[in-house]
Computed example of a mutant assay.
Amino acid sequence: MRAIQITEFGGPEVLNLTELPEPEPGPGDLLVEVERAGVNYADTHRVEDTYLSSSGLPLVPGSEVAGRTSDGRRVVAMVDSGGYAERALASPHTAYDIPEGVDASTALALLIQGATAWVLLRHNVHLAEGESVVVHAGAGGVGSLAVQLAKAFGAGRVVATAGSEDKRELALELGADAVVDSRADDMTAALVEANEGRRVDTVLDMTGGRVTDESLHALAPFGRLAFYGMASREAPKPIQLPNLMRHSATVSGMWLPHAFQLPGNVVGRAMAEMFDLVRTGRLRAVLGGDYPLDRARAAHEDLRSRATQGKLTLDPTA
């Protein structure tokens, strides 16, 4: 079968199209004929070997697929690796049936990006009705869904950041009440101004560096910042615990694989709620580009340049 494989760690240049043996299902595995594979920031870190968990070589990247099982079910599924291929193995515990009327790319957008946004809002910052929410990278895969979910969950004011005028316009179209240039010289002041002169209640941050530092300073008493990525590849300053107490602030981290370990099938509940919002027109996935499998390098280059909007996918059938 055709697949993208890396035999050394590095940037997009190490992604190579190759022919590999068919995956062999073990007991309980689902063999998925891949219709679309999702492309995520985490994939770029895994290819570099800068991810939260280390990877071995050779490696077929890709942690999510949408397609058909051998018994004909349409599913979207998390996979340990191997998504950038014509066929992949998935666990039934991380596979979800795609409802009628939902396309594969939308289902993929909901699985990692949507579930991330849902868990951040429901479990990390525990968004209360009427509270303000800052969504950094508000036109990105997670951000574009977080803006909409925050409104659906009763946020009082949603402030989105983005680095270009068209991305800020998209965030407003999706329901943001105000937008901020992500390159603002003083992010603290920009966020407070966008929140009508008030400090903000919650922040969803995947940027890192000074944006994280300055967002912390924008928090109101009992404000919460949830950190789930470092797209800038710049670490924030170390947090001084007395400062958290001084401002009654909370900082949390989130890595989606841990959400699958929570009791009560949290990710399953998230998917069911989001599928229902999609079907009723209250949530839409922003689809940022569908690349043939042999253009995986281009997908990674575009994602790393932060020039994309919404969800990127690979098409193994093309």
Score class of each variant (00 low, 15 high):
Met1Glu: 01
Thr7Arg: 13
Glu8Val: 07
Leu15Tyr: 04
Glu19Tyr: 05
Pro21His: 15
Gly28Leu: 06
Asp29Leu: 11
Leu30Ala: 08
Leu31Phe: 09
Val32Phe: 12
Glu33Lys: 15
Glu35Val: 13
Arg36Val: 05
Asn40Lys: 12
Ala42Val: 04
Thr44Gly: 13
Leu52Gln: 13
Leu59Lys: 12
Leu59Gln: 09
Pro61Glu: 07
Ser63Arg: 14
Glu64Tyr: 12
Ser70Asn: 10
Arg74Lys: 15
Val76Leu: 09
Val79Ile: 08
Arg87Ala: 07
Pro92Phe: 02
Tyr96Ser: 02
Asp97Tyr: 10
Ser105Val: 15
Ala107Phe: 06
Ala109His: 09
Gln113His: 11
Ala115Ser: 13
Leu120Met: 14
Leu120Val: 05
Leu121Ala: 07
Asn124Lys: 14
Asn124Ile: 08
His126Arg: 15
Glu129Val: 06
Gly130Glu: 01
Glu131Phe: 09
Val133Ser: 07
Ser144Cys: 01
Gly154Trp: 00
Val159Cys: 03
Ser164Thr: 06
Glu169Gln: 12
Glu173Lys: 10
Ala176Trp: 15
Ala178Phe: 03
Asp186Thr: 12
Thr188Ile: 03
Leu191Gly: 04
Leu191Cys: 04
Ala194Glu: 01
Arg199Val: 01
Asp201Phe: 06
Val203Ala: 02
Leu204Ser: 03
Leu204Met: 05
Thr207Glu: 00
Thr207Lys: 11
Val211Pro: 01
Ser215Glu: 05
Leu216Asp: 01
Leu216Val: 08
Leu225Ile: 09
Lys237Thr: 12
Lys237Pro: 00
Asn243Pro: 00
Met245Gln: 08
Arg246Gly: 05
Arg246Thr: 09
Ser248Val: 07
Thr250Lys: 12
Val251Thr: 13
Gly253Pro: 12
Trp255Arg: 12
Ala259Phe: 09
Gln261Thr: 10
Leu262Arg: 15
Asn265His: 11
Glu273Pro: 02
Phe275Ser: 00
Thr280Leu: 04
Gly281Phe: 15
Leu287Glu: 07
Ala298Arg: 14
Asp302Cys: 03
Arg306Leu: 01
Thr308Leu: 06
Gln309Leu: 02
Lys311Cys: 03
Leu314Val: 06
Thr317Gln: 13
